[in-house]
């Protein structure tokens, strides 16, 4: 029987390398050996995803390598999720995410979504072309800590402004931290529209969420 420390190390490596098939047996072995689900997630899996995120932001790995790691991570999370939910210990909280109304681009949003899940957030993905009212509905329903909005084209950037303004009118603006991202965006634009933060990529989004929890 391998030592628990060896198994932990193997699981980390499996996630970092995106080895989906290796993740499930390793998680099950660790559970069998008595490690609790929260420790598996917080001490093993999330640090592995941190390594991947760092490698990506230093351009040491390419986007598909981060995606495949996130997929491996999510397979582990799928096993742990029911136990974590039962313990009331599911990670860092809820995030509602979507591409704003008029914007049907979802590649960037999907990446952020996967990486946030990998980092221990529960992500509610509203998809593309999300009207302000739909965001508000989701805020009422899910009580998230964060609302993240994506816009890939300059045309729909102004919809972010309108969405935040609609949040204010509906009295939900102060209930959530708002993060914005997308290729044409800048920190300056995020400040102008009164968002809480701007993330230039998926890694940045995770770091900003972590600091604002």
């Amino acid at each position: 029987m391998p030592e628990i420390t060896t198994l932990k190390e193997e699981l980390q490596q499996a996630i970092i390398k995106g080895k989906r098939d290796a993740v499930e047996p390793l998680v099950r072995k660790l559970l069998f050996d008595g490690l609790n689900p929260e420790a598996i997630m917080n001490d093993v899996m999330i640090p592995a995803m941190d390594v991947v995120g760092d490698q990506y932001s230093r351009n040491e790995i390419f986007l598909p390598e981060m995606m495949i790691a996130a997929r491996a991570m999510n397979i582990g999370l799928d096993i742990l999720r029911p136990m974590l939910t039962a313990q009331g210990a599911l990670g860092k909280g809820k995030v509602v995410i979507g591409s704003v109304k008029g914007d049907i681009h979802d590649v960037g949003k999907n990446i952020v979504s996967m990486v946030l899940q990998g980092a221990g957030y529960e992500v509610i993905d509203l998809g593309i072309d999300v009207a302000p009212e739909k965001f508000i509905e989701a805020i009422h329903q899910h009580q998230p800590k964060f609302v993240l909005m994506s816009a890939l084209i300059t045309l729909t950037m102004s919809m972010m402004d309108e969405t935040i303004w609609t949040f204010k009118k509906a009295g939900v603006r102060e209930k959530v931290k708002i993060g914005v991202g997308g290729a044409p965006l800048t920190q300056k634009f995020a400040d102008q529209i009164g968002a809480d933060f701007y993330g230039k990529d998926a890694r940045a989004a995770v770091i900003k969420c972590n600091t604002l929890i």
Binding site: V107, N110, I111
Partner: peptide
């Protein structure tokens, strides 16, 4: 065409 990086 969409990115291969996110959908092979």
């Amino acid at each position: 065409v969409y990115p291969l990086a996110t959908d092979d």
